[in-house]
Amino acid sequence: MTQPEPVGDLPLVTTAELPDGTRLPVRGLRAPAPERFLPSGSGPAPGPPPAPAVLVLPAMGTPARFYRRFARQLHAAGMTALTVDLRGQGESAAARGARTPGHGYRAIVEEDLPAVVAAIRDELGPEPPLHLLGHSLGGQLGLIHAASADGSGAHGVDGVAVVATGSVWFRAFGPVRGPGLLLVQLLITVTATLLGRWPGTRLGFGGNQPKGVMRDWARQVRTGRYSAKGSALDYEALLAGLRLPVLAVSVEGDTYAPATSLDHLLGKIPGARLTRRHHTAQEAGARLDHFAWVRAGGALAELVAAWAVAEERSGRAGAGR
């Protein structure tokens, strides 16, 4: 049986300030610091490594508070669990710059996420491994950010988990659903261009978004390639060069990100150290779909934590060779 949603926001951990002055609160729960034993007459012992941290990146139009239960489950599994809103969603919706009409993938990938990751690194210190965990669009943009920042110190991350995520290329949805998706993206593009925004809350898809986000999304529907207006970066080339650990989890009953769309997305990162899993209703103990997994995520949180710890140990072993 589904438990009631815990009451209240997660504690504020830090705040990221974006280049235009917009401030994004990062909320979460810290894992306990590892105990370090000091034998008599000796210096400090190395002790166990700090627990990994994971930053949850929301789906399009989904506020970070939707992931509070899942963050608590990640924390219960031994991780520092963090959440943040994408620009224009949740707590950031009323922030200065959040309604900029031209705001799109470039701003999120190249400005917002670097600022958020840097603020987390400053707050937690350099030791805890930091992973992104992206849901739907959050997973796609999380992979692009990780690829663009791979090896870049304060802006880089140690791995990416994607859950209920996939490319939105229309051909990845087959001959029946693909043409319908092409029509949807055309309607969204026209509407967002005419109105200067996408009124998704009223129309039942994607939440309220600036036209830039929806036009970048629609371009990927049509072409299958990730790009962003105004960006000098080649997102496809960056993804092809990604060498980080990636955990890719498909979800039973997910019609928004079927296995074929995940296949297309993962085909863009051939160099990543990939772990792939399928999360079932039997494992979750509840019915699942593109969003329902968030409210029944205990088993999935344990999977993510086990993967992060295993990758941390693998990295330490590799550094010691």
Rank of each mutant, 00 (worst) to 15 (best):
T165H: 02
P245L: 05
L181C: 00
R87M: 08
H131W: 14
T62I: 14
T80P: 15
A119M: 04
R197A: 14
Y105G: 13
G90T: 01
T280K: 07
S261E: 02
A248G: 00
E302M: 05
G230C: 08
A161K: 02
Q282E: 15
S261C: 06
L132N: 00
T80Y: 01
A192R: 01
R106E: 01
A64W: 07
P11D: 13
L143D: 03
R287G: 12
V168Q: 06
G153H: 08
Y105N: 06
G41E: 08
G78F: 11
L18H: 02
V176E: 15
P128M: 01
D158T: 03
T201V: 11
H278D: 00
A64G: 13
L288W: 09
R197T: 04
L183F: 12
G267A: 08
P270G: 10
A16L: 02
E252V: 12
H278C: 00
W217V: 03
R106C: 10
V13M: 03
A319K: 06
A281H: 04
A317G: 14
G315M: 03
S136K: 03
T14W: 07
G88V: 05
L132I: 06
P52H: 12
N208A: 08
V157D: 12
V221M: 11
R36M: 07
P49Q: 01
A317M: 14
P128A: 04
